[in-house]
Amino acid sequence: MSETDVATEAHEDAPVASTALFGQAVLYPDRGAYLATVESLRDEGYCTATDLTVVDYLTHPGRSGLPGGVQPERFEVVVGLFDHARRERVRLRIQVPADDPTVPSLFDLFPGTEAMEREAWDLFGVSFEGHPDHSRILLPEDWVGHPLRKDEGIGAIPVQFKSASDRR
């Protein structure tokens, strides 16, 4: 990709790979450094977490844009942070393996991610350790499965068209 500028930025604790896609800064911390990275970013001035979601790369494993040294995994937790003072956004993409889909919860750093993490668990089955209310949010509580995973179908039902009654 021509607009991808791959660079490695030395962070205080551990080196975190970063790229800039379409002028948007992206960091790739691994799971162990995830909380520490977010915390240092928060202390830098990223004052609000705008978004948290998950992408399931099951059928598109060879995604482009990953810098060297980052091992692609099936799930990717995507977190968006916003520094209002400098008007800068940063996006974090955390690789989460399919056999152990857990990441630490951001609740203590950014309480606003509470509903988003529940949604990510509900739709993708990625669990967040330390979340105060780790439960389904959008689907019924007795639902089986996580519908936005790529190995789940869209769940379409053929519509049965009925004829109108003869008596009108």
Binding site: M1, F22, Q24, T50, R63, S64, G65, V78, R91
Partner: peptide, 9 residues
């Protein structure tokens, strides 16, 4: 659409 990921707001 070319491969990639983007966030718009």
């Amino acid at each position: 659409v070319p491969e990639g990921e983007v966030y718009a707001a």
